[in-house]
Amino acid sequence: MKALAARRHHPMALLVILLLALVATGGLYAAFQPRTAQAETYTADDIQQGEALFLANCATCHGRSGEGLQDADGNTLGPSLIGVGAAAVDFQVGTGRMPMENSGAQAWRKPPQMNEEQTRQLSAYVASLGPGPSLPDEQYLDPANGDATKGGEIFRINCAMCHNAAGAGGALTRGKFAPTLDGVEPKHVYEAMETGPQNMPVFNDDNLTAQDKNDVIAYLHALEENGSPGGLSLGSLGPVTEGLYAWTIILSLLTACAVWLGAKAK
């Protein structure tokens, strides 16, 4: 302490402190800066393995080098994957949406066909095709790092109109839909916002910052944590299910009472 105090009087001290502060700020900035470049390092082996998986599972629709394919009528079989990045692959394959079972209005979430390692290798291969969003930084996936109140505001303005205020999902045009967010991993929530899978618009970091996305994750986590203090939530679908409940369960109970009351005792 003494030495430091003594040196502080030196005219160079100010410069040293300034430099230190700059470095610290820069380091912090670098640490908190949302990364758009490759965060995860993939080995050449990963990419090679990924390519093999790609050719076996994805190339029939997306083309042998991920360039996308069209059928004879000009309809897209599978879009180009050049530049979609590792995040898109991790979301699509990690939630089981890809490989797709059969073409329909929209790919469904199902148990993933690829294990984590295979998903990583596929991501590595697709990421090597062209620069795109990489996997999210772990720190933005932890609900504890987000502000649920802010996340709630962001969610209501940007997400609830499609996914429903409770995240129960909603219908889009012609059989498409916004899926329920119940039980979706924070990583996939983040990646979906980042990459805009299927008809979901892209909410990249220029629109909602990494911290904003973290806030949304915190809000969804809080919704799940809080549960339904009033009892059965009836799917959180709002007045329609409540009305249906009144017309079925409650009316049956009331009718049973009325019938019992009106029936002659034995």
Binding site: K150, I157, G196, P201, V202, F203, N204, D206, N207, D212
Partner: peptide, 21 residues
Amino acid sequence: TRDHDGTPIRADEVAMNSIFH
């Protein structure tokens, strides 16, 4: 400006296929 935090939006921030409220 962005609805949720009032920050202005630069044209180059608006990615293809995104939506800003």
